[in-house]
Design a protein around this nucleic acid. Structure first.
Length: 555
RNA sequence: GCGCUUGUAGCUCAGUUGGAUAGAGCGCAGCCCUGCGAAGGCUGAGGCCGUGGGUUCAAGUCCCGCCAAGCGCGCCA
């Protein structure tokens, strides 16, 4: 069991007892929190229960603590419990138990940190979903890293996770993409034709046009509309291949690439429309079909079917999300969207509600926009103008590991400025190297231990009594708790910070404690410490894996 | 105008959902390798937590106003 939950349970049991004893009114709903104090003098865990009870009991919090404390039963993990003003009950872990966990971590190996918290619940994370009209750029990359890392962590927390990319291969923007590509293609063969008004101007369009063989496809011999259709189909699949391989460079693979056109071809969009008509949430005005979202609490109504008869993106998106829940049976769906889609959030949820689904099952995380800075100038990111920094550009600059760590370590709802010069210049001072260095150092020690024929498995963990050793073990042991809390709060940026703290705890231990010693009489402590190093390596490697980063054994 | 998000050290950012003396990295000033990786460790300086009220035993955290920045408010996606 997760430690913090254990403490929580001990207190809950004490509350039940206190109610039985008549100390706390039976019908009073007691709320309290258990936290890890930042000050070491306050133990490993603390609860504010006495402070919370002070109001209703009209007693001094410390006095309340003195009544509650005897009701808290002991456990092998807890060594000491005490009351401290202004009214906290503090808990400290048993040193023996802490030491014993080193064996436990080594036994668990790569599965250390996993919990069964998610109970194998079927869960979907949909992210990136960049329109295939252009490459993935820096702004998308933030959401990509967030979604992928979150998926990895949720899987570690015991969920059955499906990673999905929604391909918007239909609609006006695609038509523009097809036309733009057709024009570029004709230009390539010397035709004097101009790009459409809002065409996609990026150089990648010229690249793609250049890769399409006229011998094979004979596009120029077709009538214009036919040529556009044909080259569009080819261009779309080339674009998707690029997106897929760019994301793979970042360590991201999807389980499902869901194509929007299927929703139209299979009649899902029409189905949804009928369901909404049945539920009387539809109106027809000015030739268009509207979702009457304003009567469901939204600011305004939204068009589902345009007056020209074609469904909007919104209509398809409703069908898509309905399919996730009703047909594919995900218990929860996490969508990661760019902040520019923020206006879409509440109407999407409202639509699901209108279809009789519990809108809380859809969780939408918005990642704020990324602005780029180079030479102290802000760069504008516009796909159509072609003025953009793409994911492969970024990977060439800073590498996948730094890229992932950089994006992951910031909370998604604060907008960030990506200084390209700094990211590049800092590469040797980036936190990512600090963490990876710790892993390389650990690997180096393990190598030396093996060469010296030290039997790590034989180490006696009870010899690990140095404060640096205990602190390191305790830090390692918070990983399962962290994974569980990320699964609840969906805030993976904490993992980035934890990794750094873990590396710091290790580096400090390394300075304080000689691990491999050839001195006579040091054999036992050497074996014990080598085992701790191994456990540290397991925890650190797990962090790096969850963050999608490499765990180098040398650097 | 309305809505969403943000404002914490010189810079980039955390802050365990209301707790005890507000933290980390970079940068800055020092100190530490004749033994396992110095891409490391240690010490120090640096804060009106945007601002003004409020809520209570307790506010960076919750509520209201104001200021500033970003985004959104299409029969685009």
């Amino acid at each position: 069991m997760i430690l913090i939950n254990l403490v929580h349970n001990l207190i809950s049991e004490a509350i039940v007892q206190a109610k039985t004893d008549g100390f706390i009114p039976r019908d009073y709903n007691v709320t309290f929190t258990v936290e890890r104090p930042q000050n070491k003098d306050h133990g490993d865990f603390a609860t504010n229960l006495p402070l919370r009870l002070a109001g209703i009991l009209k007693m001094n919090p410390v006095a309340i603590g003195e009544r509650i404390l005897p009701l808290v039963t002991g456990s092998p993990q807890i060594q000491k419990m005490w009351i401290q003003p202004p009214g906290f009950i503090n808990f400290s872990l048993s040193e023996n138990w802490v030491q014993s966990q080193v064996d436990q971590v080594v036994t668990l190996g790569d599965s250390f940190g996993n919990t069964d918290f998610g109970n194998n619940e079927k869960l979907q994370v949909e992210f990136v979903s960049v329109n295939p009209t252009g490459p993935v750029h820096v702004g998308h990359t933030r959401g990509a890293v967030l979604g992928d890392t979150l998926s990895r962590i949720l899987a570690a927390a015991g969920y059955d996770v499906t990673k999905e990319y929604y391909v918007n291969d239909t609609g006006n923007q695609m038509e523009t993409f097809y036309q733009s590509l057709y024009i570029r293609y004709k230009q390539r063969f010397g035709h004097n034709v101009n790009m459409p008004e809002n065409g996609y101007m990026g150089d990648y369009m010229i690249d793609i046009a250049g890769e399409i063989s006229e011998e094979e496809h004979k596009i120029l011999s077709l009538e214009e509309s036919e040529g556009i259709r044909k080259i569009g189909k080819i261009g779309l699949s080339m674009m998707l291949n690029r997106i897929e391989s760019d994301l793979q460079r970042l360590g991201i693979n999807f389980d499902v690439w869901f194509r929007e056109y299927i929703l139209h071809d299979n009649g899902h969009v029409t189905d949804i429309l009928n369901r909404l008509i049945e539920s009387k949430n539809i109106s027809v005005e000015e030739g268009a079909t509207w979702l009457k979202s304003s009567s469901l609490g939204e600011d305004k109504d939204n068009v589902l079917i345009r007056s020209n008869g074609s469904p909007t993106y919104f209509a398809a998106d409703i069908a898509y999300h309905y399919d996730k829940f009703a047909n594919r049976q995900f218990s929860k769906v996490i969508d990661i969207w760019g902040a520019d889609h923020q206006g879409h959030v509440s109407r999407m949820k409202t639509a699901l509600g209108a279809l009789g689904l519990n809108e809380d099952r859809l969780i939408i995380i918005l990642s704020q926009l990324v602005t780029l800075k180079q030479d102290d100038q802000l760069l504008k990111v516009s796909k159509r103008s072609g003025d953009l920094i793409t994911l492969p550009d970024l990977l060439d600059y800073v590498g996948a590991d730094a890229c992932r760590y950089f994006f992951l370590s910031r909370s998604p709802d604060s907008q960030m400025e990506f200084d390209l010069d700094l990211a590049r210049k800092e590469s040797s001072e980036n936190p990512v190297y600090y963490i990876q260095y710790a892993h390389a150092r650990i690997s180096s020690i393990i190598r030396l231990a093996e060469q010296s024929r030290i039997d790590i498995e034989d180490g006696d963990v009870e010899l690990l009594t140095n404060p640096a050793e205990i602190a390191l073990i305790k830090k390692i042991l918070t990983l399962p708790e962290l994974i569980e809390s990320i699964a609840i709060n969906l805030e993976p940026h904490h993992l980035a910070h934890y990794s750094q703290e873990l590396a710091t705890a290790f580096h400090w231990f390394y300075r304080q404690c000689r691990v491999i010693s050839t001195d006579v009489g040091d054999e036992n402590i050497t074996k014990a410490r080598a085992k701790l190093v191994k456990a540290s390596g397991i925890a650190l490697k797990r962090c790096l894996q969850l963050m999608g980063m490499t765990a180098p054994e040398t650097m």
